[in-house]
C-alpha cells in the first residue's frame, strides 16, 4: 500500500472509532505520522494492534523526545504490520511538568525495557508499568540525561565558547 493511501486509511479508521483523538496527522518521508492525545493513546494503540484490517501487531520501537522549547516531552511509537508490511509512527506530546503516559506493556511485553529506557533518559512515568526503574544509568542518578537542559559537557565550565561550533 502506498504511504499516502495508508495514511488516509488510518486517518479515516481512527476518526471513525475514536473521534477526536488525533491532534495532528502528516506524512513524513515514508511514514504516516499521527499525533495522538495523551488521554486516548492507550485506546489508539490497542485499536491499531487489535483491528483486523490495520493489525499493527508488532512494536518496532518506543522512544522519547523533548521539544525544542523544553516545555513538552513526547513518546514515539513505531508500529509494524508484518504480513502486509505497513508501518506507522504514533506520537503523543505532554507537558514536562506532568510527564505521565499509560504503559504499553499490557499490549506488548517487549515494551517493558523500552519504557524503562525512556524513563531513564527522559523521566517519562509510564502508569501501570510493572517495574519502572532506571535501566542503563546508575540507580543513584538524579537527572534525566537526554533532556536538553543537561548539556553534554561539564556545566560548570566557562572557558569554552560554543557559539560557532556546537549546540
Amino acid at each position: 500500500m502506498e504511504t499516502q493511501a495508508l495514511f488516509e486509511k488510518i486517518n479515516q479508521r481512527l476518526n471513525e472509532t475514536l473521534p477526536g483523538c488525533i491532534e495532528k496527522a502528516e506524512v513524513l518521508y515514508d511514514f504516516p505520522v499521527f499525533h495522538i492525545k495523551r488521554e486516548q493513546i492507550h485506546d489508539v494503540l490497542k485499536f491499531l494492534k487489535e483491528d483486523d484490517e490495520l493489525h499493527f501487531h508488532f512494536l518496532t520501537d518506543l522512544t522519547g523526545f523533548q521539544t525544542p522549547d523544553e516545555q513538552h516531552l513526547a513518546v514515539i511509537y513505531h508500529l509494524h504490520n508484518m504480513p502486509s508490511n505497513l508501518r506507522v509512527r504514533i506520537k503523543t506530546f505532554f507537558p514536562i511538568t506532568h510527564p505521565e503516559v499509560p504503559t504499553a506493556t499490557d499490549l506488548w511485553p517487549g515494551a517493558n525495557w523500552m519504557e524503562r529506557e525512556t524513563y531513564d533518559f527522559f523521566g517519562v512515568k509510564f502508569k501501570g508499568h510493572p517495574n519502572l526503574k532506571r535501566i542503563l544509568n546508575v540507580d543513584e542518578m538524579d537527572i534525566f540525561p537526554l533532556r536538553k537542559e543537561f548539556p553534554l559537557e561539564d556545566q560548570t565550565r566557562d572557558d569554552k565558547d560554543d557559539k560557532m561550533f556546537g549546540r
Binding site: 501487531h57 508488532f58 518496532t60 508484518m82 506488548w108 511485553p109 517487549g110 515494551a111
Partner: peptide, 10 residues
Amino acid sequence: SAEMALQYSF
C-alpha cells in the same frame, strides 16, 4: 515460540 517472539519484538 513465534507468538512470544513477536510479542517481545524479536
